[in-house]
Design a protein around this nucleic acid. Sequence first.
DNA 1: GCCTACGATTGGATCGATCAAACGAAAGAA
DNA 2: TTCTTTCGTTTGATCGATCCAATCGTAGGC
Lengths: 331, 331
Amino acid sequence: MGRPTLNSVAEAAAVSRQTVSNVINSPEVVSPETRERVLAAIERLGYRPNTAARQMRTTRSQIIGLCIPPSGNGVSGVVLDQFLHSLTATAERYDHRIMLFTAADDEAETRAYADLIASVGIDGFVLTSTHHDDLRTRWLLERQLPFVTFGRPWGAEDTHPWVDVDGAAGTRLATDHLVRQGHRRIAFVGWPEGSGSGDDRRAGWAAGLAAAGLGEGPQIAVFDGVEGGRSAAARLLEAHEPTAFVCASDSLALGVTAELRDRGIRPGADAAVIGFDDTPTAAVLGLSSVAQPIADVAAECVRRLRTALRGEAGSEPATTLFTPHLVLRTT
Amino acid sequence: MGRPTLNSVAEAAAVSRQTVSNVINSPEVVSPETRERVLAAIERLGYRPNTAARQMRTTRSQIIGLCIPPSGNGVSGVVLDQFLHSLTATAERYDHRIMLFTAADDEAETRAYADLIASVGIDGFVLTSTHHDDLRTRWLLERQLPFVTFGRPWGAEDTHPWVDVDGAAGTRLATDHLVRQGHRRIAFVGWPEGSGSGDDRRAGWAAGLAAAGLGEGPQIAVFDGVEGGRSAAARLLEAHEPTAFVCASDSLALGVTAELRDRGIRPGADAAVIGFDDTPTAAVLGLSSVAQPIADVAAECVRRLRTALRGEAGSEPATTLFTPHLVLRTT
DNA sequence: GCCTACGATTGGATCGATCAAACGAAAGAA
DNA sequence: TTCTTTCGTTTGATCGATCCAATCGTAGGC
């Protein structure tokens, strides 16, 4: 004999299949006595509803799709792990499952959406790292498919639910802390203009300086990476002699500290450096960093997606912006 | 009108459903002319078979389950990212999908197996980080469920397919390299006995020393982590004054280098340190490390699982052991 | 005491695919 | 010519759940 089905449970409890189905999906319409009897039978037989059969009737798979980027994200790759775990755990609590897929670029990703919806019947998607003029969100919006993004719709209207972390607030925290420590020449090491989150982080630093009456500080934009941080620090030191650095990523911050050491400047003593993302590398090296509440973000993504799936035109705003916090270490 | 079904394609191509099904699943039984006609209709309508319906009939979901650990694995967490990406990409090539789930411990993981098989109809599982007396593999074997492990069945027979990386070969590479560099006092910093991979890595180092006629070198076992590595290095330095360190993880190696620096010993110049896992942190800090071919491991896991799913009692050995390589950097 | 209303339960149809068996036509054997 | 075989194709049944409409029993209204 195979696994128990709705029918075998019904037989065991001496009721009809539909009653068993009701016990599971709308218990309130079943009388307490029969409900108990059916639940006992379910328990005894170890019955679990078959999702494939359910999906056929309801056209809902309870599956959430997530495109997993081609790794190689360097130091900050770990963020994805936390995100995935929290996403999966939260989804499970609501009887949803996470299915992974890959795509080489945004265009391939939209093709994957179409494919997964048609074949697997995926209910909705979670997108990560949104950017200006995002092809994927446009594609999904045009087809009115349910999705949430981790990342704001940079440069566009709020036409879809999103969850994000307030990068500006993070760099602002870092800057304010440095100001309180007595630093007057606080530099920013970031990315070239145009990336939403990069500009956001820069803005928080600038606002912090302005609030402290320090005017406009020195800044430099380079592509991410340790070498980038190193050369940025070199140029900033020669031109402005800053005593503190706010960085858009831990990679950049690591480059900065390396350059400082090479010049005989002790990070933590003679100069301060604050990174972004609070990666394990930062923890290991005692580098202060702005930490994003990744687990909260993931959990909120699931919740937002669920309300989107229910199709409720939310009175509640469909977006959430989390505030990061500062993790202070020796550097 | 909803999405195209087998029936609508059949109608469009003026054949029966079954013929369309045959074109997809056993094209050789269909005559070339009708096959072309049907394929054209499929293309024109953008038809994709519904996996839920297929699963109902075939009892195969084409879904592979993977339990995602609770992160916090520290520096080496990034390894999981690569693994996941490669696993997903390879699975896609064979028309399989990866579904994630979580579990607090091994016992919970087995319950999750039962659940996912009964409800989702998952075909098989990929397990990571096997250990001595693994409850999970025993559970799966008892029920004859298809699975592969990333990690050998430590201390047990080869009763299931597995894929792993030869840790001993890795530390052997590292040790041989240090010997060639002229080091005579080469220490090992590892984990307490009992962990399969830990003992394996220790064995490679010991073998390297023996082959070089250096007898038994100094070693110390601590729990993983930077602080562990630091204190291990301190004690080893005081007792044996080693000039080189082979470490069971990058975290330990980082601790060792930190301790060396604190004592005015320059890693890379006065002493050598080699880590394990080649994490981004190691790359960033210029730490030499033993790199595992994670992408290959993941791809092989999918292949092994596929043959297990086909139910072929393989003449081919059901196991694969990859050899790591040494990534030399400044330290 | 009869009829209505309502709550609880039931049976038939259905989702979209595959399996298994039947089918007709053309080709080969008797 | 007739029977058998083979090939390509079609038809009916089925997987396990939910939807929908129908049914049953009982309590309440008059």
